[in-house]
């Protein structure tokens, strides 16, 4: 069986539908992170944005991150969904969910996963600004 813990989503993320994948009788804690599209970045007013992914590698790298999280932290299950395509202000761009026996491990793993996803997974954000300009973000 191939684990599919990481997905790219063309449609809005339904957190209520995702969360049951984390159910485990031994889990006493669930931690999640939601990344939302905000209306400003780096002093500029943002109107909307596009996420573009290199799907083959994004899926492989995302899956690797979640497998590493399960091996590295005392968690029962972990999942992540990242949106691609055009998003509006307030949209859910990325969701991470982790279940664990205890809350400390759930929080730690959740934080680690989102940090690694942002650092490693080939997904790029194009911000469309209120002044009509747009630009791909390539953080140094």
């Amino acid at each position: 069986m191939t684990a599919r813990r990481f997905r790219l989503g063309e449609e809005p993320i339904d957190v209520a539908a995702e969360r049951p994948a984390l159910d485990h009788a031994a889990a006493g804690a669930y931690a999640s992170f939601e990344g939302w599209v905000r209306d400003h970045n780096d002093g500029r007013s943002v109107r909307q944005l596009d996420y573009q992914a290199y799907p083959a590698l994004a899926l492989a790298e995302g899956e690797a991150i979640l497998a590493e999280a399960v091996a590295r932290f005392r968690v029962r299950e972990a999942r992540c969904v990242h949106r691609v395509g055009r998003l509006a202000i307030g949209d859910l761009a990325v969701w991470v969910g982790v279940s664990a026996d205890h809350r400390g491990d759930a929080f730690e793993a959740c934080r680690w996963i989102i940090d690694e996803v942002k650092r490693r997974v080939p997904i790029w954000k194009n911000e469309h600004y209120a002044d009509g300009e747009s630009g791909w973000l390539h953080p140094t």
């Binding site: 761009a93 942002k118 080939p122 997904i123 790029w124």
Partner: peptide, 10 residues
């Protein structure tokens, strides 16, 4: 072959 610029997901 793909050259990947710095990523900005999340």
């Amino acid at each position: 072959v793909v050259f990947l610029p710095p990523v900005s997901g999340g």
